[in-house]
């Protein structure tokens, strides 16, 4: 694992990550376990968010009943795709953060994941709202709620 031409690091000295394929355990030194655990929990939280999006997509496909052909897929597939991308991105983020922790560097301030999630959910919400309105307009008035029982006057 030695780079050509470079000198080997002294014991305890932080080493540079060479590329994204480097395992976090191969660089730097063991960080404070509390920071590692916090980084791990953040990854797990993002991963659960990704799984929730995938589950929401599957639920939309299973339970959404609309008259417009293909509307279910327009809602379900982007949710599933966004969840899959978010899951992969969260792993890369965890790796980047672990590298930074092990090299005693400030954590990279990235908002890519939040931005991706925010914009993704916003776009899907707008598309879903447009589809819902179009479905109501094209299929007539929405079903009225059941009327309250009328008591006969005594």
């Amino acid at each position: 694992m030695s780079s050509g031409g470079g000198s080997d690091p002294l014991p305890g000295q932080a080493t540079e990550p060479r590329d994204d394929d480097t395992s976090p355990g191969d660089v730097g030194r063991e960080p404070d376990p509390r920071f590692s655990f916090a980084n791990e929990r953040t990854f797990l939280a993002w991963n659960r968010t990704a799984l929730s999006l995938i589950a929401a997509g599957a639920a939309a496909a299973a339970f959404l009943r609309v008259g417009l052909g293909g509307a279910r897929l327009i809602v379900a597939l982007p949710l599933i795709l966004l969840g899959s991308v978010l899951s992969f991105a969260s792993y890369r983020e965890w790796k980047h953060n672990e590298h930074a922790l092990r090299l005693d560097r400030p954590l990279p301030y990235r908002t890519r994941l939040s931005r991706l999630l925010g914009w993704g959910v916003a776009v899907i919400a707008v598309v879903t709202a447009v589809l819902a309105v179009a479905d109501v307009l094209l299929s007539g008035a929405p079903p009225s709620p059941p009327a309250a029982p009328v008591r006969a006057p005594r």
Binding site: G57, A58, A61, L77, I80, L81, S84, S87
Partner: peptide, 12 residues
């Protein structure tokens, strides 16, 4: 998670 997404897409 990624495989789950792919499977969900296939099923849907």
């Amino acid at each position: 998670s990624v495989a789950t997404g792919l499977l969900a897409a296939v099923i849907v």
